[in-house]
């Protein structure tokens, strides 16, 4: 049966080696998934800001009741991050491409927003696994 499939695939020029390679990589991707750090359930959600790889700020997003904006000035360049309950976003940056601002709000665990020219990386850590809920009634 596999041979039949293979000949079908051959019409598209696919050879045995191709299939083997594809399978190896898919396997590798699943293995990588297993070895990647599991996301924690219900820990406090933090937004961590790294500059040139070093942590320069850590904000607890769960405890924010009133959103606020915090400016950062590094090497003469300015960026402003807006912190809200459960999320953070770049709202201003002196960089040229403004990709960080375009990225918008990040709120899930391991979500990141990066401003490369300013060497800033904003990452979300912890927090309940994004349960894909639009709102919580309480």
């Amino acid at each position: 049966m596999i041979k039949d499939r293979l000949t079908e695939l051959n019409k598209a020029g696919i050879k045995k080696g191709d299939v083997i390679i594809a399978l190896i990589l898919v396997l590798a991707s699943f293995l990588a998934l297993l070895y990647s750090p599991g996301s924690s359930d219900s820990t406090e959600k933090y937004a961590i800001l790294y500059h040139k790889g070093e942590e320069i700020d850590r904000i607890n997003l769960d405890s924010i009741d009133n959103p606020y904006e915090k400016p950062y000035i590094l090497n003469g360049l300015k960026a402003i991050i807006r912190y809200e309950k459960g999320s953070a976003a770049f709202i201003y940056s002196d960089c040229r491409d403004k990709l960080c601002i375009e990225r918008g709000q990040i709120k899930g665990q391991a979500d990141a927003s990066v401003c490369l020219p300013l060497n800033l990386v904003l990452i979300i850590e912890g927090g309940e696994r994004e349960k894909d809920m639009d709102a919580v009634v309480y």
């Binding site: 769960d62 809920m133 709102a135």
Partner: peptide, 19 residues
Amino acid sequence: LWSVGIRDPFGSVNDTFAS
């Protein structure tokens, strides 16, 4: 398509028990 979470009445502010 909307999904709403219901707060766990026995838990803290961030806990939900159902959606």
